[in-house]
Simulated scan of single mutants.
Amino acid sequence: MVKYWKTDDRLIHEEVWVNNGVWVQMINPTVAEGQEIAEKLNVDIEDVLAALDEEESSRIEMQDGYTLILVDIPTIEIRHDKESYTTIPLGIILTQDEIVTVCTEDTPVLQAFLNNRVKEFSTKKKLRFVYQILYRISALYQSDLRVIDKKRTEIEERVGEDTEDVDLIALHELESTLVYFATSLRANGVVLDRLTRYKRLEQYPEDKELLGDVIVENKQAIEMTSIYRDIINGTRELMSSVIDNRLNNVMKYLTSITLVMAIPTIISGIYGMNVAAEWMPFAKTPHGFLIICVLILIVCLIILFILRKKKML
């Protein structure tokens, strides 16, 4: 899908054709749509469709007449019937008169511009528009990181009797997401560093200040990712320890029960041997069987008392 947008008097409206100061928004475009835009703007078709490859890494390339900027943005995907976070490429192409964005999804990063929620937004000020997009990307990373930490907190609150293996799997998925985020944020940081030396288009002092804010927000997102990864590692180790401790308690309990049950088994086994009756205690005593059962019960109670005192039960 391809749409054309332009701002007039700080309000955005849709255009029907490409002209100066237009923002070309491409959402999961077909090859034919990509070829059409490439011919109109005199851009390489491979650069137009580069963002459709999920394996593309963040970079900035300066070609004849235009500049390609690729950055990673966070998005939600369904994994194991649950919502999980991942990253996808967002392509930005800067020509002399137009700006093109290419993405496989209708990302909330760009929806904010279409809903007039970004101050001082203008499709004619292309470089500022790029910096505003990058700022929204960093803000979205931070927002998603807070959601991830909230999920981690919910799992941590269940540590104890309600801890299950599924919680360990959920923590592993959160940790994997943070690895993706950390990799993408570092790559985006390299792009931002190159943009500080970008001279092809005119930059106003306000634009440079905005770029500085973007760099700060990106570094903050990287730091948040690192902190949350460390916290998740600690939570995962805590849960593993709780599960191991629970298993140890079960093993102690079963061992104690086995020890107590072994006493009547041993005594009954001795009395079951085929030997002369005069050698077996209480063999000829009236109520001998009852006496032996009482003795077995007393010995079992003593063993239980000792085990309980040693906190084995």
Rank of each mutant, 00 (worst) to 15 (best):
E278A: 12
G272M: 12
I231C: 04
M261H: 08
G269E: 09
M273D: 11
D230G: 01
I215P: 00
W279M: 14
M251L: 15
L247E: 11
V214N: 06
L259T: 05
I227V: 13
D213E: 12
L211A: 04
K219S: 11
P205M: 02
N249K: 14
I215R: 15
D244T: 15
M273F: 10
T265D: 06
V216A: 12
R236E: 07
E209N: 12
I231S: 00
E209Y: 08
G234W: 00
N218R: 02
E217D: 07
E278W: 11
E206Y: 00
E217K: 09
I266A: 15
S241M: 01
N233D: 13
S256C: 05
L238P: 00
V260T: 06
K219G: 06
G234Q: 04
V275T: 15
A221T: 00
Y228S: 05
T235M: 07
G272L: 11
A276K: 15
I263H: 08
E217F: 06
A283S: 15
Y228G: 00
R246C: 08
I232W: 00
P205L: 06
T258R: 02
S240D: 13
I231A: 08
N218H: 08
M239R: 05
N274I: 03
V275D: 09
L210V: 00
Q220C: 03
I231V: 13
F282G: 07
E223Q: 11
A283R: 04
S256D: 04
M251D: 08
E217A: 12
V275R: 06
I215Y: 03
S240Q: 14
I227T: 11
Y271K: 06
